[in-house]
Design a protein around this nucleic acid. Sequence first.
DNA 1: AACACTCTGGAATAGCGTTCCAGTGCCAGC
DNA 2: GCTGGCACTGGAACGCTATTCCAGAGTGTT
Lengths: 235, 235
Amino acid sequence: MATRARRPERREEPLSRERIVEAAIGILDAAGEGGLTFRALAERLATGPGAIYWHVSGKDELLNAATGAVIAGGMAAAAAGATPQEAIRALALGVFDAIDAHPWIGTQIARAPARSPMLRVFEHIGRQVQALGVPEAARFTAASALLNYILGVGGQNAANARGARPGTNRTAFLDATATAWAELDPEEYAFTRGVAGRLRDHDDRVEFLAGIDLILAGITGITGITGSASIADGR
Amino acid sequence: MATRARRPERREEPLSRERIVEAAIGILDAAGEGGLTFRALAERLATGPGAIYWHVSGKDELLNAATGAVIAGGMAAAAAGATPQEAIRALALGVFDAIDAHPWIGTQIARAPARSPMLRVFEHIGRQVQALGVPEAARFTAASALLNYILGVGGQNAANARGARPGTNRTAFLDATATAWAELDPEEYAFTRGVAGRLRDHDDRVEFLAGIDLILAGITGITGITGSASIADGR
DNA sequence: AACACTCTGGAATAGCGTTCCAGTGCCAGC
DNA sequence: GCTGGCACTGGAACGCTATTCCAGAGTGTT
């Protein structure tokens, strides 16, 4: 029976980088960004801070690993669509939902070391942009625009989720902001006041997808199907 | 001479919320997010932490005020354009440049309390969207898409700026990432590798504007000029 | 002249990320 | 079967942080 499948285990489940990241995600989800301390983490894992540092170099790496794990999960959840447009929508929704379920990611994605997980998203978007028939010169711009929009929405959505009290649900929050917007200065915030009502029966995911469609329309309208590739020549 | 223009001043320049925020921005620009401590701030203002707390409720409010001041400055710098498209471009560039000049804003914009300065940006974008002739039902979506894209680019750009060492200039950084991308796994990162070369002669501002134009094309293409308002009826 | 009131800044507190290190238990070589 | 090495542990300690507290200085009003 060869090499007795390695079962030393001085404890039921030995400490490992994977287990630490998993516990960190759990704490982040439950207590938010500020709740993740090495002390809390040590307590949850029934160990001391020193043991954690043996597996993980520091808090930055930990946050980065947690972000990567969640984003990767969100992308995996998105099943590929039939058309490139549908594939992009599914991919975007996967990332959107992942950020929505773990709002602490919102601030992480604007951090330097967190950019490697984003590269995977960029790659997948880029392939679908290519499949869309976008000429080579415009592909980078198109994929970047989509990714940046997704990250922008994710960040803002996460800020909203963190801003609302843990108890209140989404419709109550939207109602509160709609009311707040409606009470803004009529001169200074004429437009915002005007669209405040639209906030009440507002579905974040639908709105998000509408934005994606807007960008997709811009991409195919300018570069694709019609054949006129005005964006391809500079600016 | 009426009410002797209020010159008590027990020190040359009395402490004030404005002066504190100004000093905070100075520290943030010089030393980054981590460099802003109440100790450093107190030293720069030649006072103690207690005095600062009398004018400002805490670090969160301080960061929020600093963000607001910078964003407001960026918007003011953007002169209005002749057409709505040009006005949107100018406004977007103003915000872009403000974030670019103060990279620490990148993480701030994804924070809950920092959303009030963004409301002003949203308002101005919305007005131009309206001027563009977008039907009412689609205005919210259009303005949101633009704002989210701007914030997404800002966040990612700031992450890049913070990631690069303070000394290195932009072209050196782009060169480094282009090389890194070109060395990625050919199977897994086929698209990213393909566009790596495009990174070398890449102007962030031009690229940013190209994305704005893409979204504008989507907005006017779907809702405006042609008259077909497919986006107006749901999804 | 004395009060009230705004404003100051040094000292103190609790909690953070991180480091240090004495120790634990397993495995390889003898 | 012993023993030395080594991966791994976790409690204690360090320097730093945001924040609070408070004794008091300076100024306008009475």
